[in-house]
Simulated assay, not measured.
Amino acid sequence: MKQNGVSVVYSQLYPFEGLWNYTSGIIHHVKSDGLEPETKYYYKCGDSSLAAMSDELEFETFPLPAPNKYP
């Protein structure tokens, strides 16, 4: 499955001498619908047209709520 999202970089510029300006790394935002509970998903972030992809990463979705199951 391939999903598109947005990438942003946040900057904070201070107008006073002596304060350090801040620029974040690239932050990727993607909304994924239809994920199954208690399932491990693997993903990469970046722009495949530029050969600028992250390493493969993973996350696991929470289980469905039940009396004896806790996330």
Rank of each mutant, 00 (worst) to 15 (best):
M1Q: 11
K2Y: 04
K2Q: 07
K2C: 02
K2F: 07
Q3C: 05
N4V: 04
S7G: 11
S7Y: 04
V8S: 10
V8G: 02
V9K: 12
S11G: 13
S11K: 15
Q12S: 12
Q12A: 12
L13K: 13
L13E: 14
L13W: 04
L13Y: 10
Y14R: 15
Y14G: 06
P15V: 06
P15N: 14
P15S: 12
P15G: 11
F16M: 07
F16K: 05
E17V: 07
E17S: 12
E17Y: 07
G18H: 09
G18E: 01
G18R: 12
G18C: 04
G18Y: 06
L19A: 12
L19S: 08
L19D: 12
N21E: 07
N21I: 01
T23F: 03
T23I: 13
T23E: 15
S24G: 05
S24A: 09
S24Y: 04
G25Q: 14
G25T: 12
I26W: 00
I27K: 13
I27Y: 10
I27F: 06
H28R: 13
H28K: 09
H28T: 10
H28P: 01
K31D: 12
S32V: 15
D33F: 08
D33W: 06
D33L: 09
E36T: 14
E36A: 15
E36H: 12
P37Y: 05
E38C: 04
E38R: 07
T39A: 10
Y42V: 06
Y42L: 10
Y42T: 06
Y42R: 07
Y43I: 08
K44F: 00
C45W: 03
C45S: 04
C45R: 01
G46C: 03
D47L: 08
S48V: 06
S48K: 15
S48H: 11
S48I: 09
S48Q: 13
S49I: 05
L50S: 10
A51C: 04
A52V: 01
A52F: 10
A52I: 00
M53F: 03
S54F: 00
D55V: 09
D55G: 11
D55H: 08
E56S: 15
E56K: 11
E56V: 14
E58T: 15
F59A: 12
F59D: 01
E60V: 15
E60P: 01
T61L: 02
T61Q: 06
T61P: 00
T61C: 05
F62T: 14
F62M: 14
F62W: 11
P63Q: 08
P63Y: 10
P63N: 09
P65S: 05
A66F: 08
A66C: 04
P67C: 06
P67W: 03
N68P: 00
N68T: 14
Y70P: 00
Y70C: 10
P71I: 08
